[in-house]
Design a protein around this nucleic acid. Structure first.
Lengths: 222, 222
DNA sequence: AATTGTTGGTTGTTTTTACAACATTTTACG
DNA sequence: CGTAAAATGTTGTAAAAACAACCAACAATT
């Protein structure tokens, strides 16, 4: 495992405060993988494992039997996928797709359930990091259900954009989605989303160009 | 803390395999509370803590500024609330409401972050239980977003009912929601939900009476 | 610069939903 | 048992979304 890969892994939230990251990789049966843009990194029903993205970007999706795509979230370098499936021992019900060429490290699901037997500080710390990471993604899902629970497209968009604005700490920001992706994230029709965004701009609620948005303070009166 | 309360706590998923539950309660600054039906057990923005329901039932909700209620899930005896907020250190963004008269035990959020210092087996096991429990609720949210992402009321209902059927392992089962609650869970209008359920019954997809549902195998062709 | 593909925007039509108002059934309780 | 209150079902209408088909802008490639 090269220096750079190890560095990316050490930077992931899972490995904060771990003294011997390399040893952990051995413990958890880490193996490096490479995928081309568009390929599936982890598919439905596959053996659960934790994926750490070390290079590139990826999207977590689920699709129903009629091909309706549902975007769950987006992952960048140093971010992880799959922990909730590993530790709940639940079947993998989402799919991880490479947006770009991707390098990643996969930690074996079964090995993650076993401590190293030495009850070492690193394993305890790792478990704590897992708790924190999964909790954060849990709160993230909670936020997404907030958006999805809004009745109109306008309300969904406002809910998402204000949350994003708060996260970025600015009224002007770039979102990580194309139009089609934003539509799939908010579970609305793309063209309907485009129309509504246009109306919202006409109403003075927002300004936007492609994926760059600015929300106006008039938004509070909407 | 009386025998029965302690027993309920020991039965919660958080305490599986813990040898000295009573000592854990001391470590985590457990305090017992009682609420009347309809009262708020934990409100928005309150100090994060883990709540273990020892008697009664409760509902997790969030409301937007215009009073639209969004039901997140329902909790029964031995089930827990709040762990994701505690460990993500995120602000509490949902509200826990008593459906019936409720007795519960609250574990102090700050104390949960500290091990007992003795690096004891019980604390390690507890942390592992936390991981498992939060992972399960994470997967639960994932499932809920599946329902919410469907475009029509019929699809939302089918998605929910088939998931429920699989969970119960039977085609006939009782759901934990009233009509209004199911509507708030699936983010649709109550009367529209009633109509749609009627149409679905007329179409031979389902049979129902109040909260008792039976899904037909014709559902596979829908 | 021309070509091609991708992305975003526009418009009109059909379907679906929200909303409101009311009818019916069930439940709680004096 | 009878009545009130709550829950569920029904219907009609107005609003909103999905859908489809198309156009415009932009990016990448040669």
């Amino acid at each position: 495992m090269d220096k750079l890969t190890l560095e990316k892994i050490a930077n992931s939230r899972l490995m904060q405060g771990i003294s011997d990251v390399e040893k952990m990789m051995v413990c958890f049966g880490a193996r490096e993988i490479e995928k081309r843009s568009g390929e599936t990194i982890v598919g439905y029903g596959e053996k659960a494992s934790i994926v750490i993205i070390t290079y590139g970007k990826a999207t977590v999706v689920s699709e129903d039997y009629f091909g309706n795509r549902n975007i769950i979230n987006k992952l960048s370098e140093c971010e992880i996928y799959g922990a909730a499936f590993v530790y709940s021992r639940h079947e993998v019900t989402s799919r991880l797709i490479a947006d770009t060429d991707v390098r990643a490290v996969m930690l074996d699901g079964e090995k993650l359930h076993k401590a190293c037997g030495e009850n070492c500080a690193d394993h305890t710390r790792f478990l704590y990091n897992v708790v924190k990471t999964i909790s954060q993604s849990c709160v993230g899902f909670l936020e997404k259900t907030e958006h999805l629970s809004r009745r109109t497209t306008r309300e969904k968009v406002l809910s998402y954009l204000t949350a994003e604005s708060i996260k970025k700490g600015a009224t002007e920001f770039t979102i990580p989605f194309s139009r089609q992706e934003l539509a799939d994230y908010l579970a609305v029709d793309r063209s309907a989303l485009s129309s509504e965004l246009g109306r919202m701009q006409a109403d003075g609620l927002i300004c936007f160009k492609r994926s760059r948005f600015k929300i106006n303070n008039t938004i509070l009166n909407a």
